[in-house]
Write a protein that binds this DNA or RNA. Structure first.
Lengths: 357, 357
DNA sequence: ATGAAAGCGCTAACAC
DNA sequence: GTGTTAGCGCTTTCAT
């Protein structure tokens, strides 16, 4: 591949390899004659010299490579944004990402960490494909590590997760701010952190507006389009049908759109909908576009790498830190004020609960 | 990270590092006493010895790392399958993938290739995010390379692309086999290879069944859900409305579903639909599930790595090869025989054209 | 069957 | 300012 070494550059420019190393690395405190410097630089250019980072890493004990291990990048499309964010931050620091995914197999996971460690990666990001509490593989702790979209039970390793509560609250507040007072929630029936957290956000939003929480407004379904359809249908065929629906995920919102269509309800005319995830393939393709909450995958990816690099560069062990990154609301066309002209089963007077702070 | 070296293992087992290297690598032709061997292995285990692959690579001139450069992994969700496929094949050969993406910026691309080369990757896969003809960056040719989901104009570098024609033909034949004879095609208006290739597949399928191709059956739209809606609506409101529609992509099919819904046509009762891409988020979420054609991303990823490894391991340069991988039909619920009970504008007698071979 | 020694390409003391 | 030298941890002749 690259047959030209520092030695070649040294010979051709009539200096020692040390000097070449000095100019090429701009070694601080090592002053070198501008003329020599110029010459070396020119020769390196001419020869298309490409420093061997393997040799460099061997010598400096720093590979400038970071392992990115995930349980299943493949499954969720927007998870790739975590990788892109990680790459972004890594590139800034001159590091490359070595990608590996285990498909969730713990044995494989351990072997993969071993492979990464053998390659002398400077640290490892362990990414999960949805926000969860997970005990990382034991050998992960053999070096700097950060958990991405997950939190370890003991909190011993740094981690970053999305602010599910804040995101859900923002979603529901968008509905409330538009004037909706009868709001349904098509939630998931999975046993994952987001289930409780997003429900908390839902309740907090109601509270801000001084509204009472009614468990009957929450309907838990399978986390897919079919579940959304079922949930939407259940909510929309009630006597006191909601004028706004918050969905646990965009996929569920897709089902709600269909249910609304079948019932002759137009969005956002008769019904406002807010999703969660911002799966652009869906949120941007539905008609009207789905107002939803974006998971900060890119930022989490960046945060993980930056934090990892901090650990790597710190002279001595730093305590673990845990970040909760904001989930921004993405406004599209699915929210509008509730219609007075075509009243729902229950007339929605804007009553009680004033404006929030 | 790993402070124990081959030297430590040697000392602890009372042999030279040479012997340790021999047993650990199972060097062929080098016979070593079973007892010594056993001891070395045990000690290595005890010490948690982890060979330094940087040092190894420096010595052997083989890093067992492969660069995976893509223009934008992020954009298309299923492109991650290419990465997973690549990883799969790389893992088999004991190689790791170093991931990089350029966002399509040619300058950055060149610098990234340089970074990969400095890391002494054994070869580079250059992946594009949709099937296209692309001139790879000049410095890519500094080592073994393979194009993924792209073809170079000069054909000098090996490449792999999906069989668009065959996929489209299979899609349309599914419609034909179900008995449809009036088939519309909601195509893309982008200027990309797939446009012509899928149209060719469409025509070939008709030909197999002895049907005449009518350009009016093809309507080109923007490659998104809205375009699909427009195209579907245009097709379905014609006097001789088709009973089956082939869509350039699943996103377009999503729009067709909506158009059909609005017109009171049920799928697959009144209308059969076939998509292309198998974007599972969509194809699996629509109701009924969308019968569609899958792009062989996983297999293409595998193929790219296997071919690259072939190049790397070959004692002398091998000629470039170009692969076209099959796109399998994925059957879900959107195709059924045309209904006689609820005739379309034109009655669809199964006339002319017999069964295909 | 085992070991000594050279060297992969580089950086970093330490001279001069 | 510039050069000498000693490794980083490993594989690989070549001896023994």
């Amino acid at each position: 591949m690259s047959r030209v070494t520092i030695k070649d550059v040294a010979e051709r420019s009539g200096v020692s390899i040390t000097t070449v190393s000095h100019v090429l690395n701009d070694v601080p405190g090592k002053r070198v004659n501008p003329q020599t410097r110029e010459r070396v630089l020119r020769v390196a250019e001419e020869l298309l010299y490409r420093p061997n980072q393997l040799a460099r890493g061997l010598r400096t004990q720093r590979s400038n490579m970071i392992g990115f291990l995930s349980d299943r990048v493949s499954t969720t499309p927007h998870a790739t944004k975590m990788i892109v964010g990680a790459q972004d931050a890594a590139a800034e620091a001159g590091s490359l990402l070595v990608l590996l995914n285990s498909g969730g197999d713990p044995d494989l996971e351990e072997r993969e960490i071993e492979a990464l460690l053998e390659r002398q990666v400077d640290g490892i990001v362990y990414a999960l494909f949805y926000h969860q509490v997970a005990t990382p593989p034991a050998n992960l702790a053999n070096g700097p590590a950060v958990l991405l979209d997950a939190r370890s039970p003991d909190g011993l390793v740094s981690s970053v997760v999305p602010d599910e509560i804040g995101g859900a609250r923002a979603a529901v507040e968008a509905l409330l701010a538009a004037g909706h007072r009868q709001i349904g929630y098509v939630a998931t029936n999975e046993d994952i952190p987001a289930r409780m957290l997003r429900l908390t956000g839902f309740r907090q939003a109601l509270e801000v507006y001084g509204l009472e929480f009614d468990p009957a407004d929450v309907i838990e379904v399978n986390p897919n389009a079919r579940g959304g359809y079922d949930g939407g249908r259940a909510l929309l065929t009630r006597s006191n049908r909601p004028t706004g629906i918050f969905c646990f995920k965009d996929l569920a919102a897709m089902g709600v759109y269909q249910a609304a269509g079948e019932l002759g309800l137009s969005i956002p005319g008769d019904l406002s909908v807010v999703g969660f995830d911002d799966q652009e393939l869906i949120s941007d393709s539905l008609w009207p576009g789905l107002t939803t909450v974006a998971l900060p995958h890119f930022e989490m990816g960046r945060w993980a790498i930056r934090t990892l690099l901090g650990q790597i560069e710190a002279p001595e062990p730093v305590p673990a830190v845990h970040a909760v990154l904001p989930c921004p609301l993405v406004r599209r066309g699915s929210v509008a004020p509730p219609s007075r002209l075509r009243p729902a089963g229950t007339v929605c007077l804007v009553e009680g609960g004033g404006r929030p702070p």
